[in-house]
């Protein structure tokens, strides 16, 4: 390919310059090599000393930032999960506590009610007993009064009937006799 191009070039130029296909013209090699070494060397130095460290630093910094962010997000997530667990545990504890308190309170209240009930019952039955005793006493007293009234009435009746006097003792004896 190169040779055909060379002949074409020679034909077209008609020996205008050296007549050699320029990319293969050895006379230009020293100059090109000289400048290639200088410019490629310069490029290498610029890249390795200046440009690449800068670009690398940007990418490293971003990677570090992202890794840090991800780690922080993970830590926060773990923290949240721990908090949720803690909350659920607290909630369970509180529920259990509430149940206990409710049960205890119920038992206490029931016991109190029972106690008061029994006290009240005792008081009431005592009052009833007292009342009954009082009634019985009053009854007995009344009966006694009936006796004495009966005696007096009998004495009065006897007095008014017979006009005589009777002794209380005789009347009481008589009443006791009747009663018997």
């Amino acid at each position: 390919m190169a040779t055909t191009e060379t002949t074409e070039s020679t034909g077209a130029e008609g020996g205008h310059e050296s007549g050699v296909f320029p990319p293969l013209d050895a006379t230009s090699f020293p100059s090109q090599l000289f400048w290639l070494v200088i410019f490629f060397g310069a490029l290498y130095l610029l890249m390795s000393r200046m440009v690449l460290p800068k670009l690398g630093a940007i990418l490293t910094k971003r990677k570090a930032q992202m890794d840090g962010d991800i780690a922080r997000a993970q830590a926060l997530k773990d923290e949240t999960e721990a908090a949720v667990k803690h909350y659920e545990k607290a909630l369970g504890d509180a529920k259990a506590n509430a149940n206990d308190i409710a049960r205890d309170t119920k038992a206490k209240v029931t016991a109190e009610i029972d106690g008061e009930q029994s006290v009240l019952d005792g008081e009431l039955s005592k009052k009833i007993k007292d009342a009954e005793a009082r009634v019985a006493k009053a009854k007995a007293k009344a009966m006694e009064s009936v006796e004495s009234i009966a005696g007096e009435s009998a004495a009065d009746i006897v007095a008014s009937l017979t006009g005589g006097k009777t002794t209380k003792v005789a009347v009481a004896k008589a009443i006791a006799g009747i009663k018997r």
Partner: peptide, 14 residues
């Protein structure tokens, strides 16, 4: 004996 010149190629390398 080799001429070193600043050519259009060198210019574009720069």
């Amino acid at each position: 004996g080799h001429q070193i010149s600043f050519t259009n190629s060198a210019l574009f390398m720069g």
